[in-house]
Design a protein around this nucleic acid. Sequence first.
DNA 1: CCGCGGGCCTGAGAGC
DNA 2: TGCTCTCAGGCCCGCG
Length: 293
Amino acid sequence: MPELPEVETVRRGLAPVMQGARFTKVEAHRGDLRWPLPKDFAQRLEGQSVEKLGRRAKYLLADLSSGEVLIMHLGMSGSFRIAQPQGVQTPGRYYYGQSSHSLHDHVVFHMSSGARISFNDPRRLGMMKLVRQADLASEPLLRALGPEPLDREFNSTVLAHLCRGKRTSLKAALSDQRIVAGLGNIYVCEALHRARLSPRRPASSIATRSGRPNQRADMLVDAIKAVLRAAIEAGGSSLRNHRRTDGALGDFQHNFRVYDRAGKPCPRRNCRGTIKRIVQTGRSTFFCPLCQN
DNA sequence: CCGCGGGCCTGAGAGC
DNA sequence: TGCTCTCAGGCCCGCG
């Protein structure tokens, strides 16, 4: 499921009930996620409080009072749902007892804030891992990640430099977490359409031979930032599994310009093209062959 | 270094 | 109704 906007939506939902709260009880119903949970997973969390819930790329990072960091990834189908205890009922929320815990709720956090947080992941391609804070910089999952696209430091100079000399396609380059961290199949397609760039174009073509950004690089960076901001604003995109932590759907899927719109007219003003689906590096790419060059 | 394909999993939807 | 096939928002690994 989740790309940067979905993960950020989840982070914003979880932060109010996790930050400053303590794990009073942790249930690991299934430990065989993408990688097995450590045997002492629950014990290492129980009693610890969450000092901060952050995000890096598509990873959620909970800084714990123990000096460890809980790294969480939603894989393709992971989601978190918050249930509030009876007594602090808010309309539209799920409550204890109303849906106790369902088939794919593999991990459940009970927090001192009163919230019960369930991690649901049908395909079990998600993961959780505990590492020492001091080891975070050398953590293999995070070490090679490229810049955060919404940070100031992500600009056309940086992107052009990273794409310099790359003969691989723009689509593949933007999907590569080492070049820019957090984009996935949807937002790469959407950003390229907004930037009017063909997904088939060589990545190197956004840079001059010496690695300086050209106009295409400027367009692309603006498009990436714009689409991610808009998607976060909309609470992410709900196709199959993504939900906000209160169970509500995200809204951004209604704003897709190309993703999953093969055969439909290009939404760009005055463009008479038809959205096409092709396969690149084993994944569907959607684009308008007329206005994306 | 690079691209590609396979693998990890389950479930939804299409077609027969 | 039920079977089979394909595909899905991610990412790691090994091959050539």
